Simulated scan of single mutants.
Amino acid sequence: MRKAREVKAREVLVIGGSRYFGKRLIARLLAAGDRVTVLNRGSSAPPPGAVHLVADRDDEKSLTAALGSRTFDAVVDQVCYTPRQAAIARRVFAGRTRRYVLTSTVEVYEYEDSIAPVRETDVDPAAVPVDLGLPWDDPEFLDTHYGEGKRQAEAVFTAGPGFPFTAVRVAHVLGGDDDFTGRVEHYASRIRAGTPIAVPVVNHPATYIHVEEIADFLFWAVGQDFTGPVNAASHGLLTTEELCAEIAAHHPDGRTVLRPVEVGEVSPFSFARAYGMDNSRATRLGFRFTHARQWLPKAVAETLGKDGG
Rank of each mutant, 00 (worst) to 15 (best):
E212Q: 12
L102E: 06
P48W: 11
Q224C: 04
D253S: 14
E246C: 11
K3P: 00
V123M: 08
K3C: 06
V76Q: 10
F141T: 07
W295T: 15
R259E: 15
K61I: 13
C244L: 06
S18E: 04
V128E: 06
P47E: 12
V199H: 02
T283N: 06
R35P: 00
F226P: 02
D307N: 03
P161G: 09
A4T: 14
Q85H: 09
K3A: 14
D143A: 15
Y208M: 04
Y187R: 03
G276N: 08
P48Y: 08
T144P: 02
D216P: 04
G17P: 05
I197F: 08
F141Q: 01
V54I: 15
D73Q: 07
G149Q: 11
D307V: 09
V106H: 10
V108H: 02
V38H: 05
H210V: 08
Y111H: 07
A193M: 02
H186T: 09
T303M: 13
V7F: 02
V257H: 10
E242G: 04
Q224S: 04
A193F: 04
P268V: 03
S18R: 12
A193T: 10
G176M: 09
E148H: 05
H250D: 05
V211K: 13
P205Y: 09
F217V: 13
P129W: 13
V106I: 14
E242Y: 06
R5E: 11
D58L: 12
L67T: 04
W136K: 03
R255P: 00
R96C: 09
T105W: 07
L304P: 07
G176H: 02
G194C: 01
E154Y: 09
Y109P: 01
A86E: 03
V222E: 04
Q152L: 14
T240D: 00
V201W: 07
R98G: 15
T290R: 15
A153H: 09
V36L: 11
G49N: 13
E11Q: 12
A127C: 07
I115K: 05
G49A: 13
A86D: 04
R273D: 00
A65P: 00
G176W: 04
H235G: 08
L296W: 06
D58A: 09
E242Q: 15
